[in-house]
C-alpha cells in the first residue's frame, strides 16, 4: 500500500496531529460551556460533564424516535435536533442552577463545588437508570463515514465538520459576549455583580441565561460526540468533564478563546504522547502538560493576570 520513497515518519506525524486536533476540538467544545459558567459565577460546574452526556443521550432519543430523518433527510433532521438539544439541555442547566446553585450563591464557593459534585453523581445515575448501563449507539445513517485522502493523510470528513463546528461556535460565543448588549451585561455581571445590579442589570436573569447557554453548548457537544464516534455511555461525562475543565484551565478559565486553545493543545498533547511515548500513559501526558503550563503561567495561557488583592 505504501509507495517506496514516501516519508513515513512525516506522514505519521501529520496524521497524529490531525487525530489530536479532532479530539481537541471536542474538548474545546465542552470547555466552552465550562468556561462560560465559570467566567460569570466563578463556579466550577462539575455537573457540566453530565449535562454533556445528557445532550448525547437526548440527541440519540430524538434521532431514533421522531423518525425525522425519514421525512427530512438526515442533514436537516440533525440540524433541527441540534437546536432542540441545545434548548433542552439549556433548560436542564437552568433547572440545575435553580435547584443546586442559586441557594448557595451567597455562601462560600466550596459549598457550591460540593453541591455540583452531588448534582453530578445524581445526574449520572439518573441517566444510567433511565437509559440503562449499556453502551448506546447513534443510528448509522446519521453518521458521515466518508474519509478523505489528502496528501497521504486519511481524514474522516466528520472530523473536519466537527472541528469547523467547534471553531464556529467559539467565534459565535466570542462575538456574542463582546459585541451584543446581552453579552456586555454578561461581562458586567462577571466583573462585579453588585455594580451590575446598580446599573440596572437583572443579575438573576443573566445568570440564568448563562446557565442555559453553557449547558446548552455542552449538550450540543455531547450530540456532536455521539455523531462522531457513534456510541455513548452514561459515565462518559466524568472523563470529558475533567478534560474540558483541564482545557479551560490551561487556556485561562473564563476566557473563551482560551478554552479553544486549551482544548486543542490538550488533544494534540495526548495524541503525540500516545503516539510517540506510550499510549497507556495518554491521560498522564494531558495532566503533565497542564502542570507544566501552570508552573510557568499560573493563570493559564490567556488568563488575565489577576492582580493580587492589595
Amino acid at each position: 500500500m505504501r509507495r517506496p520513497g514516501e516519508d513515513v515518519p512525516m506522514i505519521e506525524f501529520f496524521q497524529q496531529l490531525s487525530n489530536g486536533l479532532a479530539v481537541g476540538g471536542i474538548y474545546a467544545l465542552v470547555a466552552l460551556g465550562y468556561t462560560m459558567v465559570y467566567g460569570v459565577l466563578k463556579l466550577i460546574n462539575f455537573a457540566h460533564g453530565e449535562l454533556f452526556t445528557l445532550g448525547a443521550y437526548l440527541g440519540m432519543t430524538l434521532l431514533l424516535s421522531f423518525g425525522l430523518s425519514g421525512i427530512l433527510g438526515p442533514l436537516p433532521a440533525v440540524l433541527i435536533i441540534f437546536a432542540m438539544i441545545t434548548g433542552l439541555v439549556g433548560l436542564s442547566g437552568f433547572v440545575l442552577e435553580r435547584a443546586a446553585y442559586r441557594p448557595l450563591r451567597q455562601s462560600n464557593r466550596l459549598a457550591a463545588v460540593v453541591s455540583a459534585l452531588g448534582a453530578s453523581i445524581f445526574l449520572q445515575n439518573a441517566i444510567m437508570l433511565f437509559y440503562g448501563p449499556n453502551y448506546q449507539v447513534y443510528p448509522e445513517e446519521t453518521r458521515v463515514t466518508i474519509t478523505l485522502s489528502v496528501l497521504g493523510l486519511d481524514i474522516p470528513l466528520m472530523r473536519i465538520l466537527l472541528f469547523l463546528a467547534s471553531v464556529l461556535l467559539m467565534l459565535a460565543m466570542y462575538l456574542f459576549i463582546h459585541k451584543t448588549k446581552t453579552g456586555t451585561a454578561i461581562r458586567a455581571v462577571a466583573t462585579d455583580q453588585g455594580a451590575a445590579r446598580l446599573m440596572g442589570i437583572d443579575v438573576n436573569r443573566i445568570i440564568s441565561l448563562v446557565f442555559m447557554i453553557g449547558p446548552g453548548l455542552g449538550g450540543a457537544a455531547g450530540m456532536l460526540l455521539g455523531l462522531y464516534y457513534g456510541q455513548i455511555r452514561y459515565d462518559m461525562g466524568t472523563l470529558y468533564g475533567l478534560k474540558a475543565f483541564t482545557a479551560a484551565i490551561i487556556g485561562g478559565i473564563g476566557n473563551i478563546p482560551g478554552a479553544m486553545l486549551g482544548g486543542i493543545l490538550l488533544g494534540v498533547a495526548e495524541a503525540m504522547g500516545a503516539a510517540y511515548v506510550a499510549p497507556a500513559w495518554k491521560d498522564a501526558f494531558a495532566f503533565l502538560v497542564l502542570i507544566v503550563i501552570l508552573i510557568f503561567r499560573p493563570t493559564g495561557l490567556l488568563g488575565e493576570r489577576v492582580a493580587d488583592k492589595i
Binding site: 443546586a100 459549598a111 460540593v114 459534585l117 445526574l123 439518573a126
Partner: peptide, 18 residues
C-alpha cells in the same frame, strides 16, 4: 447513588457552611 447525590446537594443547601 442517585439518592446519595441528591442528599449531597440537599445537605449543602441546608448547611452551606458545613
Amino acid at each position: 447513588l442517585l439518592f446519595f447525590g441528591a442528599a449531597m446537594v440537599a445537605m449543602m443547601i441546608f448547611r452551606p457552611q458545613g
